[in-house]
Design a protein around this nucleic acid. Sequence first.
DNA 1: TATTGTTATACTCTATAACTATA
DNA 2: TATAGTTATAGAGTATAACAATA
Lengths: 167, 167
Amino acid sequence: MYDLAVTRNQNPSPAEPRGAPAGSAFLLAQVGAHAAARFAERLTELSLSPAHAGILRLVATGPRLNQREIAARLQAMPSRVVTLVDELETRGLVERKPRAGDRRSHDIVLTAAGRKTLGSLRRIATAHEEELTATLTEDEQAQLVVLLRRIADGAGLLPGAHPGYRR
Amino acid sequence: MYDLAVTRNQNPSPAEPRGAPAGSAFLLAQVGAHAAARFAERLTELSLSPAHAGILRLVATGPRLNQREIAARLQAMPSRVVTLVDELETRGLVERKPRAGDRRSHDIVLTAAGRKTLGSLRRIATAHEEELTATLTEDEQAQLVVLLRRIADGAGLLPGAHPGYRR
DNA sequence: TATTGTTATACTCTATAACTATA
DNA sequence: TATAGTTATAGAGTATAACAATA
C-alpha cells in the first residue's frame, strides 16, 4: 500500500499528479480500509462493532461453537472473544449455554433479540455493499468477487476471518 | 465486512460452510487488510511503517510540501505527521528545510539516504504486489485495477490517502 | 488574530500472562 | 497435567488540546 508499487502496465498519461500511479496492492488496501470504516460507521446505528457483527454471524448458523472455537474460526485471541461475548450477552443478543459433558465449555447461542439484530445487520450489510459497488454493473461486481476470492485463496485467508481479528 | 451481505448472485453450492457467502464488501475489507498487513510485515525489513512509506513517497516528487500540506494530502492529523517526520529525520531519510518567506513553515525533503531507501521501498512494493496478484493473469490484474479505481472514485478517495491515516 | 509546528496528556484497543474451574 | 474461560495489567498507537513562534 501507500502507492509505491510500479504497476506492470504503466499508464503513460502525461500528468500523474504525484509519484507513481496506485498499484493494485495499494488500491486494495485503500478501498478495503474504506469499506471496513464505512461498514463500522453504519454499525454505530446498532451500537455494534464489526467484531461483534462477525461473532453474531458466526453463531447464527451451523453447529454450536464455544468460545475457543469462535476464536479459532476468526483467528482472534480467546481473551478478546470473552470481551466481545460479554458485551453481546450484556445486551441480550447471545447467551452462554453450558456444553453437555464438559462444564468448562460454553456454547454461544443467539437469543431472539440476537436474531432480530442479525436481521438488521444483514440489511445494513446489503445496503453497504450496494453503496460500495454502486458504480459497477452486476457483471463487474461478479467479476470483482471472482478476482478477490482468487487472491484470498492464494493468500490462505479463511472465510469470515477478517485480519482485523488477527492474533 | 464480516461476511454479512447477501450477494446479489447467490451461489447455490450445496455446502456453504457457515452463514452467507462472502459478499464483495467483506472480501474487499478482508483482502485489503491482508494486503496492508503483509506490506507492513515486509517493511519491517527497513524498520519502517506503512505510514512512513507514504510520507517518503509523497515527498519524493513534485513541488515541496510542508507538514500541513502533507497532512492534508494524506488526510492525517498534523501532530501525527510531526511524529512521523521526526522519526524519518532522526534516521536521516528526510530533512526539514525552512521555507523561504515564512519562517514558521518547514518543507520536508528527501536526503540522499532517503532516496536510496525509497528505491528499496519500491522494490518491496513491487514484490508485494506480485505476490498478492500471483494467481491473476495480467489481464485480470488490469481489470481489478479498473474496478477498484471505479470504487475508489465513487467513494471519493484521494490518491495516496490511505484511510489508515484518517482523521 | 490566525497559522505552523510542537509537545503533553488522555484515551482506546488489544495482547500477554496470571489465575479458576474443570477435565 | 492440560484445557476453557476469565481477569488484570501493560503496551502501542493516536487524537485532543494546550502551547510557542511567526505571520
